[in-house]
């Protein structure tokens, strides 16, 4: 699949260098332009290999009541297949030590295992439901998983400026049959290809949630990551903040750091 995309992509990109952007735009359909933008966003974020980050979550109820969660995560960038991730829950305290291993796939169900420390039991869990809430938050599992190109089909909608940054607005249609969304609209800034905003539409096509990403920082002079995500659910009035900290890249992790044994030892 990746190969097929790059077969389309490489001539496209070389065309882009040879001709002016305006000529391309006129030759391209909105679908081709959407795919080109998504492909470029994917390309500029390739090569980080492995990463580690700490996540502080704040769940906010419609009346402003706050609940917090702490999770540490490490990732392995997928070459052929999707990314792998290992998450360790530090709070709430009753689930402290619980760990979660996921091998993500674009079009099939992910492979997921949960380690329950009280029982010392590793459980393979069903993962069809990528639309289920992550730790009771407004983020679904699919909102936090890696964004392989094959996961969506694309349609360029318009250019728009938000927060003084020129953006492409690209509509993404999930290719995964059990996705919780009919589509999502993604604002990507033209300069660095960073995601600034995503609007999620439920399966009936109604606006469900809006995600805003703030405080982007560049790591290793290449990879942009936001410090803060804010997700508002328009249908329930609930919202969730994600505060990311301590990003580390290029840790030299390998597949051997992401298996059931490392899951059981995770601390």
């Amino acid at each position: 699949m990746l190969n097929r995309v790059s077969k389309i992509l490489i001539p496209l990109l070389s065309l882009m260098w040879l001709n002016s952007a305006a000529q391309i735009a006129s030759a391209e359909t909105p679908q081709e332009k959407g795919l080109r933008i998504a492909t470029e966003a994917d390309r500029v974020d390739r090569g980080w290999e492995s990463a580690r980050v700490a996540l502080h979550m704040v769940l906010i109820s419609p009346n402003g009541q706050k609940t917090t969660r702490e999770v540490r995560m490490q990732y392995l960038e997928g070459k052929e297949a999707g990314d792998k991730s290992l998450s360790i829950f530090d709070s709430p305290k009753d689930v402290q030590g619980t760990a979660f291993l996921s091998f993500s796939h674009a079009l099939q169900s992910d492979e997921q295992w949960l380690f329950l420390p009280a029982l010392k039991r590793v459980k393979r869990i069903a993962s069809t439901n990528k639309s289920g809430p992550f730790m009771g938050s407004e983020f679904a599992f699919e909102d936090l998983s890696s964004s392989e190109i094959e996961k969506y089909s694309y349609e360029f909608l318009r250019d728009e400026t938000i927060d003084n940054q020129d953006c492409y607005v690209v509509r993404n249609f999930p290719q995964y049959e059990h996705s919780g969304y009919s589509h999502r609209d993604v604002w990507i800034d033209k300069k660095h290809y960073r995601v600034l905003r995503i609007e999620y539409f439920d399966r009936k096509g109604q606006l469900l949630k809006t995600l805003e990403q703030h405080g982007h920082r560049q790591y290793l002079d290449k990879y942009w990551r936001a410090d803060k995500f804010y997700m508002a659910n328009h249908q329930t009035g609930k919202s969730t903040e994600l505060h990311w900290s301590g990003f580390e890249f290029g840790l030299g992790l390998t597949d051997a750091d992401f298996n059931q044994n490392t899951l059981m030892r995770a601390r």
């Binding site: 069903a126 069809t128 439901n129 639309s131 289920g132 809430p133 919780g180 329930t236």
Partner: peptide, 14 residues
Amino acid sequence: FEYTVYGVSEQGAD
């Protein structure tokens, strides 16, 4: 077997 029915409530209960 264990079979899960997802999103049986508005809040996304399983």
